[in-house]
Amino acid sequence: MFSLYMSFYYLCYCMILIKQVKSLLYKEILLEWRSKYAFNGILLYVISTVFVCYLSFKTTPPLVWNALFWIILLFAAINAIAKSFMQESKGRLLYYYTIASPQAIIISKIIYNILLMIIMSAIAFLAYQIVFQNAVANLGLYLIAVLLGSISFSTVFTMISAIASKAGNNGTLMAILSFPVIIPLLMLIIKLSKNAMDGLDPSVSYDEIGVLCLINIVVIAVSLLLFPYLWRD
């Protein structure tokens, strides 16, 4: 009887959580759609960085081509996601506190950032590919690497930006805190995308894909556990 009651309770909790996540996500997208400030700004940032790189490098060997692409995406992601908590005013945060659970807030932020990063990195990849013209042997696997890369950047940076926003809102702190944490993921992603460029058999890359998925799951789980503590002020 007790376990039945508990499972009913959890079911209700999950449904409320999903509902809250949905409406928060809708709010995020609506706000972004009205101003288009963050999206357009980051888009211009990515395109102009690609162009600066093109003008300075002209042609690149494959190793540099791959590394350069990920460095451009890394900085774009830091700039894009750093805003996710810093743009919220103190009053608005207090309002969220009264109407939504902390888990719903962090999940909605993570999903929103994943969507933003996927669109951005797709556009960046397109621009990069057009300007630099480098043959990627296994395009499908490379796109999977880009997808996994944007998901990893979003999950890690969302939590770091929450921490940085609580500690005085400066960009330097965001970079200092996030670089050491993202480097292991970045190394895996660069290796995976290099495999895709060289056209190696996909079975070679299963290890990297597995570890990346595992790290993302761990990061999301730890964020869900820790965010309520960060949130309560």
């Binding site: 939590m159 770091i160 921490i163 944490v181 292991p184 790290i215 990061v219 730890v222 820790l226």
Partner: peptide, 19 residues
């Protein structure tokens, strides 16, 4: 606040250091 936020960062960074 310092104790709380740094504890959160410490716990968050540890699994990634293990990897």
């Amino acid at each position: 606040k310092r104790a709380k936020i740094s504890a959160i960062y410490n716990i968050f960074a540890f699994p990634i250091m293990v990897v």
